[in-house]
Simulated scan of single mutants.
Amino acid sequence: MTAAGAAVSEFGNALSLLVLLFWATPISSLLVAAVLVAELLPFVLGAPLAGLLVDRLPNRRLLIIALLCQGVAIAAIAPLMGQPVFVVALVFASGCGRAIAQPCISALVPHIAGEENSTRAYALLGTTRSVGNIAGVTGGALLAGFFGHPAAMLIDGCTFLAYAVLLAFVRSERRPSGEHSERPSAMAGIRHVRRDSVLFAAILGLACFVGATVVINVADPAFVRFVLHGNEFLLGAMQACWMVGILFGNRVAARLVSASQLAQALAITGMTTGVAVLIPATFPFVAAAVIGWFIGGVSNGVDNVAMNAIVRSRTPEQMRGRAFAAVGSMVTGANLVGTAAAGGLLLVMGPRAVFAVGGTGAFVAGAVCLVFVRRALKREESPAVAELSSN
C-alpha cells in the first residue's frame, strides 16, 4: 500500500513540476528558479521542526496529514496560474507538507519491512516512485497538452488524496517512545550526522554534487526549447529516460550491504552524474541527451537508496526522524543554492554552458567526496592508528 501510494503521489509530483516549469519558462528563468526554490526552501528552514514532529508523533497519521495539506495547496494553484506570486506561495505551502512527509516515510519504512529488509524496501519504494515519475512526465505532458495546465494541477491534488487513503489501510505504525523530556532536542539529528565521520563525509559530498548538478533543473526546459528545439513532450521524454535509469539504479543499490559500500557508492555516483550531464553539454543532440539522462538516472537511483540506507544503519531508531530531516536539509540546502545560482547563470550564459558548469562541478565534488569517505572509513577501521597520527 505504501509503495503504491508513493507511485501515485510521484505521478502527481512529476506532472505538476513539468507543468509549472514549462509554464514559467516563457515568463522568466527567474520564475523557474523561484518555483524550484519555493518547493525546496521548507526542507532547509523546517528540518529541525519536521524531524522533531516525526520523532514525537505517530508517523503514519502524521504522513496522512502532511499529504492532505500538500493536496490542498497544489489543487489551489489551478485557478491562480495567472498570478505567479500566488503560485509560488502555494508551491511553498506544498513544500512544507513534503518537508514533513519525506523524513516520515523514511523513518516508517523499517517498521513496515523490518530492519533487515530496509535497504531492499527503500529500493522498492524508489522503484515505485520512479514508475510514478515516468508516468507523470510522459502521461503528464499529454494531460497538460490536451486538458490544459490548471486541469493537470487539479489531478495532482487528487493524487495526494489517493495516497492518504491508501495509507489508511496500512497497519504498521512508528510510535516514538519515551517521555518528551527524555528525547534529544530538535538539533540532535544535525549533531549526530556531524559526529559520525563516515556519514558526514558521504552526506556532505552528496550535498555538494547535488548542488552542482541541480542547475540542470532550471536550465533543462531552456536546453530542450532552445538547443534541442523541442517542446514539453521532449522534455517529458528526457525526464522519463532519467526515471528509467533510476529503476536500474535502485536494483543495483538494493545489493549494497555495508556502510563502506553505501558511503563509497554515494561518492562514485557524484562522478557518474557529472559525466551524465557533460554528455549532452558536449554533444547537443537528442540521442546524447537520452544517453546522458539514463546514466544520470542510474546514478540518482543508487544515491537515493544509499542515502536512506546509510542514515538508517548508523542512527539509533529513536532519533531517525531528526537524522533523516537533518540529512534532507543538508542535501536540499545545497539543492536550493544551486537552483538559485542557476537562475542567475542563465542570465549570463546559455543552457549548454550551464550544463557544462554543473557536470564539471558534480564530477569534481564526487571525486573529492570519495577521497574523504575512504579516509573516514580507514580511521574508523583503525582507531588506534588515527589516534597516534593525531598526536
Rank of each mutant, 00 (worst) to 15 (best):
M1G: 07
F22A: 07
W23L: 05
W23P: 00
L31M: 12
L40H: 07
V44T: 10
G46C: 13
A50Y: 04
L53F: 13
L53T: 10
G71E: 14
A75R: 06
A78I: 00
F86H: 11
A89V: 15
C96L: 11
N117M: 07
S118F: 03
L125N: 02
G126A: 03
G132W: 05
N133D: 08
G139K: 08
A144S: 11
D156Q: 10
F169Y: 08
R171C: 09
S177D: 08
S181P: 09
R183T: 05
P184H: 14
M187L: 15
A201P: 02
L206V: 06
F209P: 06
V215P: 00
A222F: 13
F226R: 06
A240M: 14
W242A: 06
W242Q: 07
F248S: 07
F248K: 01
G274R: 10
A281Q: 03
F285Q: 11
A289T: 14
N304A: 15
S313F: 02
Q318I: 04
R320M: 05
A326I: 06
M330D: 02
V337Q: 05
V337H: 06
A342Q: 05
L346K: 00
G350H: 09
R352M: 07
A356V: 00
V357S: 03
F363Q: 09
V368L: 11
V373Y: 02
R375P: 02
A376S: 06
L377N: 12
R379D: 15
E381S: 14
V385G: 13
